[in-house]
Design a protein around this nucleic acid. Structure first.
Length: 168
DNA sequence: GCGCTGATTGTTTAG
DNA sequence: CTAAACAATCAGCGC
């Protein structure tokens, strides 16, 4: 019954291992914060991307956006973003999976769009590496009325709970 | 004046 | 598979 996002019973790894959860990973802002970057050993993330698509907000972020508004509303004095983050994280874990469904659903859609963007992004990388062809083209997300322009006029009535109905 | 830091968790990405 | 990075936010503080 439950959704089954991936393979059931797959979360063992995460619980078993979570050494890196130190939260203080140091400063992931290697971009320019400090020279923390892993000593240029093996640039993990490629170098700079021409037009790298930003990561879509995860379910938690989607919820966070909403939570931030509420939190701030009741705590207008709050001044640290960390406060919201902590509160949100606490509540987030407190929520039931069903409650996270709408958030996850939204995140899932964003992810789908993101994949499309990556397609173009990958193409560009390929072209670049090859030297660009003469005709390249950008497929650029043709369209898709899905979420991008689909809602155009419609409001955001997102009721799509239809996701992953995969069963065996 | 500008820009990073902090804190949350989830997803993403490259090796 | 794994480890690391980064996604938003916002005000405070450093240089």
């Amino acid at each position: 019954m439950k959704g089954a996002r991936g393979k059931a019973a797959g979360k063992n790894t995460a619980e078993a291992l979570k050494p890196a959860e130190d939260r203080k990973i140091g400063k992931r802002k290697a971009t320019l914060g400090k020279s923390s970057v892993p000593k240029a050993k093996k640039e993990r993330r490629a170098k700079k991307d021409p037009n790298k698509p930003k990561r879509p907000p995860s379910a938690f972020f989607v919820f966070l956006e909403e939570f931030r508004a509420t939190f701030k509303k009741e705590n207008p004095n709050v001044k640290a973003v960390s406060a919201v983050g902590k509160a949100a994280g606490e509540k987030w874990k407190s929520m039931s999976e069903e409650e996270k469904v709408p958030y996850g659903a939204k995140a899932g859609k964003r992810k789908a769009e993101y994949e499309k963007q990556m397609k173009v992004y990958n193409k560009k990388q390929e072209s670049s590496a090859n030297g660009m062809g003469d005709d390249e083209e950008d497929e650029e997300v043709h369209d898709e009325e899905d979420v991008a322009s689909g809602e155009e006029g419609q409001h955001q009535q997102e009721d799509d709970e239809e996701e992953e109905e995969d069963e065996d």
